[in-house]
Amino acid sequence: MDQAADLPIALDNEDALSARLEAFLATQLGRPVKITALKRFAVGYSWITHGFRIAAPGIGGVIDLILRLGPSYGLFAPYSAAPEYLSLKAIENQNVPAPKAYFWSDDPAILGAPFSVTELVRGEAPIPWGEAGNMPDPLRDSLATQFTDALAALHNADWQISGLAALGAGVTNENVAGLQIKAWEHNYRRWTLRSYPMFEFGLQWLKEHEPVAQRVSIIHGDYRLGNFLAVGDKITAILDWELVHLGDPHEDLAWACLPQYRGGTNLMSRLITREDLYSRYMAKTGLTIDEKTMLFYEIFSLIKLAATHIAAVSVFERNHFHDMRMPAMGTQIAPVLRQMEKALEAVT
């Protein structure tokens, strides 16, 4: 890489970004690479996502690719592309529809920020809000089945034989809940611009009720309607892996069951009844869903959600992240904390 390439680049300078990406891919593939049609997508709240194309033979025949960049001012900064990349590699051929992952680096000298390069998968993302979330019963049933099966397959994946094993050192069934509480408490303390007594109340309750996991699995971290692509009645890819980590499978289930993603219906992620989700999931994983553990992870999910909204306020007000979705998320801190208060009313 020449001297100019060592200098940081503005992430919105698409010409410079293309040139740097061509140089990086040429080194990785051992041949010259020409990039065309680099285009930023208006998706996601956190990583910056670009689509681009490389000439045939592409990478293993794939010519349409995705570049994701984790900017220093982003919602969950500072970023590392490693967990997402390693998780996607770990679930290849494990019946979890997901983009193929090709390259990653956390070195900002290469493209100006940590990044990953994956396959572009075709499809539309059904969203949980408004009329747009309505769908005919046969379509919903088909998506619900695949949604549940993909989650079960993810939680069945043997991460210990993959590159994720290094990230999982020291994670046990006994300490995994505590590690997650610690991580999100740390996030809250570095993001928040003021104190939220209900947040502290929820954290305290979690610390006093840590469950032991039946299994440590790969946890997507944001598994719900809105975070997968579908073509017709077929889910083509589960997306948004940025919160992936090792954890208790109840965590993804509780998140998928949050009222926020039910679109005003009684269906989990606007797809499936709680009973059907539980019974199919248990049959596919051999795990038992424990109601006390579900309550723990429901409260934990609300802690994550409130902390994410608090992060949004922080990046807008402190990091100058010019995105009006951030202060809009800030208005949701109180409703999420109120939801937590209600959920804890009977048990505190």
Binding site: L193, R194, Y196, H309, V313, F316, E317, R318, P327, G330, T331, I333, A334
Partner: peptide
């Protein structure tokens, strides 16, 4: 619950 009106 946005923090500072000025920053907003």
């Amino acid at each position: 619950m946005n923090h500072s009106l000025e920053s907003l």
